[in-house]
């Protein structure tokens, strides 16, 4: 059974079409990266999945039920993009309050989370730094060991150490079978965690792919250093070569897709050094943002 299934999910705010005809399926147990620039409709989607907004058209099914059903929301953990609570609440107050509403937290698990994220439960929300508020947001989202986590920009504001802790926690949760839905406006934040990503632009889901497929789409940059001055046009007609530029005895190549034909051709040349640059996933991603992604 899918953890999240939307059919033609649409939300308009007066003239603004925030989410249009969204058909999205997130399987139980997967980590799904929900990507798009600011204003693409990521937060609107999450708010629809939690019944904060009512769809203009279409339906959303979460954990097999309706988002409005409290029994469904009991099994969901939600991290808002910017958590706001009464500034007088301490972390402990908030966790106790939410715990009571959820029918009780496991105190050992909550204490472990507080330790992992190094958050003092006795400080008031109003005194917490942005980073600490972020930590509290994560802890309250994970505190009841939800089956589905809806995380809106989870890693923004976390330092690298905490990002690593966050990644460990996500892996731990998925090992228990939890489903993670995380939004971000940059790919690297979700690339390491997500199995699949969906790319949203102006309210429309324009691409759903595994991270591997995106990588395959990525253009690799290659540098061949030869023992002799390179000839122009030696890579002409080789499949996958998007760009070939010669500079003295060096050939710069941009390759899309399989590297095999390029290597075969390179084998005919006196190669001294072969320098490859990491497949640039971000570039693929940005091309979808910019709108030329549809052409592929």
């Amino acid at each position: 059974m899918a953890a999240i299934r939307t059919e033609n999910l649409t939300k308009n705010f007066r003239q603004i079409r925030a989410v249009q005809g969204l058909d999205l399926t997130v399987d139980t147990g997967e980590v799904f990266g929900y990507l798009g620039p600011n204003g693409a409709g990521k937060t609107t989607t999450i708010r629809l999945l939690l019944d904060f907004l009512r769809p203009t058209a279409g339906t959303a099914t979460v954990l097999g039920g309706a988002p409005a059903d409290p029994a469904v929301r009991r099994r969901i953990g939600f991290l808002p993009a910017d958590l706001s609570v009464d500034p007088r609440y301490t972390t402990r107050d908030l966790l106790d309050f939410y715990g009571a509403l959820r029918g009780g937290h496991d105190p050992a698990w909550v204490d472990a989370l507080l330790q992992r994220f190094d958050l003092d439960p006795n400080r008031r929300f109003g005194e917490l730094s942005t980073g600490n508020r972020r930590k509290l947001g994560l802890i309250q989202a994970f505190a009841h060991r939800p089956e589905l986590l809806l995380l809106d920009e989870p890693t923004s504001g976390l330092d690298p150490l905490l990002q690593a802790e966050f990644a460990r926690l996500i892996r731990e949760m998925t090992s228990f079978g939890a489903t993670i839905f995380l939004s971000s406006h940059v790919l690297p934040e979700v690339e390491e965690l997500a199995g699949r990503v969906g790319i949203l632009r102006q309210g429309e889901l324009i691409k759903v792919a595994t991270v591997e497929d995106l990588r395959a789409e990525a253009r690799a940059r290659l540098e061949l250093r030869l023992a002799e001055p390179a000839l122009e046009g030696v890579f002409d007609g080789v499949p996958g070569v998007v760009e070939a530029r010669t500079e003295g005895s060096t050939i710069h190549l941009v390759v899309e897709g399989s590297m095999d034909p390029v290597i075969k051709r390179a084998a005919t040349l006196p190669v001294v050094r072969l320098i490859t640059h990491e497949a640039d996933l971000e570039e693929v991603f940005l091309s979808y943002y910019a709108g030329d992604g549809n052409a592929r």
């Binding site: 939690l50 019944d51 904060f52 409290p70 939600f78 958590l83 706001s84 609570v85």
Partner: peptide, 14 residues
Amino acid sequence: EADRMEPLLANPIT
């Protein structure tokens, strides 16, 4: 108005 409604309503209450 203080954006404190949504975190509260994410809990299992109608």
